[in-house]
Design a protein around this nucleic acid. Sequence first.
DNA 1: ACAACGTATCAGCGAGGAGTGATATGGCCC
DNA 2: GGGCCATATCACTCCTCGCTGATACGTTGT
Lengths: 114, 114
Amino acid sequence: MAQIVDDRKSATIERRAKLFRGFADPSRLAILGALCNEPLAVHEIVERTELSQPNVSNHLRCLLDCGLVASDREGRFIRYRISNPRITVLLNDVDALLDVVAVGVEACDNYREA
Amino acid sequence: MAQIVDDRKSATIERRAKLFRGFADPSRLAILGALCNEPLAVHEIVERTELSQPNVSNHLRCLLDCGLVASDREGRFIRYRISNPRITVLLNDVDALLDVVAVGVEACDNYREA
DNA sequence: ACAACGTATCAGCGAGGAGTGATATGGCCC
DNA sequence: GGGCCATATCACTCCTCGCTGATACGTTGT
């Protein structure tokens, strides 16, 4: 019984961690940031983020699998968009938290700076 | 000028990514989850999370540097607590987002499952 | 049908970070 | 003050993940 509770708890934690990892990458954040303004085709994302095309495609696949973005084919373009407004909410929350902890976060050298 | 804007934009993205990474680890989430209920000393966190003591200490140092937790010495104990309510808000929002995308997130095999 | 464009896939490399075990530091009590 | 408990630190290993370059797939126009 306690075991079941533990399993359920840790399963929740693992899911949270995995979702956070989805956001914990500059490239994916750049893509999501670009898509927050408007839906975009892949080559447009490539232009705006200055990431390589395969790189963008890889991350889009990840974001798509995770359900964070959705895609619609339009002729030979594929237009990607944010799948759920909660994502924007989350990004805003992070910015709000950053207003408070930005200094500390930048100072933390337990993981990489850039 | 465009360069400055780019720099500023990417600096924002990097900060966001770094903060997200702070949350993107099961151990740190377990610690934060435990602290959400009540302030705890290190050995109490060790008991509840079943993580090793050095591991907990390492993560606490990281969370402390980032400003996500705060600490108070109490005799030979050191009591840690969540530093800002926005953190709880953020965790709740993630859960809310998970209600929508949990299936996709678990299905995404672009990064590790557990 | 062919050329050109848009997008996806894959293997391989490199770096960063999480966990462990041993050890150091510091405060408490008898 | 010596032993003990609570916490911190460090070196090291392993594993995961992100990026790149080459290439394949698919769609559209001519």
